[in-house]
């Protein structure tokens, strides 16, 4: 017998952020890979279009070529600069403006960190920086806590997308509060992209099943034993979680329901 796979029943539409349309709902970072080849292969395997980068001083000793554009083509990927490492609104605004001057786009992944141990975001600094950057013409994607009120205020401040965390940056603890993420997604009209904390494919799938618009991850790929293989797993997980969300899951029940007829049993 020959079987052919039915065409994929696609229910999805493109992801639109700040007026730009993207096919992939998985976004990936470029930090912490053991080698540049690992980074490049992982990004390719992930199918991501949006790739994050950081702004740092040029190494004037020139002991190594550390510029990421040496390895990644800006024509091939949408470069999303972050303000990682910034602890105040002013500092984050400065980094965002430097990033924009590099000349690729006016999007910024805004981070204003409030605590060095947990790297949790500073809601007040985020709001101040978001307002200023939006006034200055930026499309702000704001990395924030899994807190509905802060998320709503960031949307009101003009954020193009809100990026609540699954768990702290680099922790790999997975989705700690599905309820919060689900609620943020339900209440916001701008895209909700979960950023940080995803550790493995099941985390990504579970996160997408909450209905969010996408996931951004870095460490889960960079620190996997085989980064490109994990990137492929994450791509499948994001697609599976998204497809399951759109398909609409069955209700949960506390008791069993037979799947086979109860009538017609032998005496």
């Amino acid at each position: 017998m020959t079987t052919t796979l039915a065409p994929e029943p696609t229910l999805d539409t493109p992801l639109v952020i700040g007026g730009r349309s993207f096919r992939s709902r998985l976004m990936v970072g470029t930090g912490k890979y053991r080698t540049n080849a690992d980074m490049v292969h992982s990004i390719e395997a992930s199918g991501a279009e949006i790739v994050t980068v950081a702004v740092r001083r040029v190494d004037l000793d020139r002991t190594k070529e550390e510029g990421v554009l040496h390895h990644l083509s800006p024509e091939q990927y949408f470069l999303l600069a972050n303000t990682a490492g910034c602890y105040s609104a002013d500092e984050a605004i400065r980094y965002a403006r430097l990033a924009r001057e590099a000349g690729f786009n006016d999007f910024v992944k805004l981070e204003v960190i409030g605590d060095r141990e947990t790297l949790l975001p500073d809601g007040e600094g985020l709001l101040t920086a978001t307002r200023e950057l939006v006034r200055d013409g930026f499309k702000v994607l704001a990395y924030t806590n899994d807190d509905l009120i802060t998320a709503l205020r960031l949307q009101d401040a003009g954020a193009a997308a809100v990026m609540p965390l699954a768990s702290p940056i680099g922790s790999g603890l997975g989705l700690l509060n599905p309820y919060s993420i689900r609620t943020i997604k339900r209440r916001l009209s701008v895209p909700v992209i979960v950023d940080a904390g995803v550790g493995t494919a099941s985390d990504a799938c579970l996160t997408m099943e909450q209905g969010v618009d996408g996931i951004l991850m870095n460490t889960a790929l960079a620190e996997a034993r085989e980064p490109a293989a994990m990137a492929y797993a994450m791509r499948l997980a994001v697609d599976a979680g998204r497809a399951a969300f759109l398909a609409g899951r069955m209700p949960r029940r506390e008791v069993a329901m037979p799947s086979s007829p109860v009538r017609g049993m032998l005496e």
Partner: peptide
């Protein structure tokens, strides 16, 4: 003078 560029980051 500050000279900056893009490096790997998340």
């Amino acid at each position: 003078v500050e000279l900056v560029h893009f490096v790997g980051g998340g």
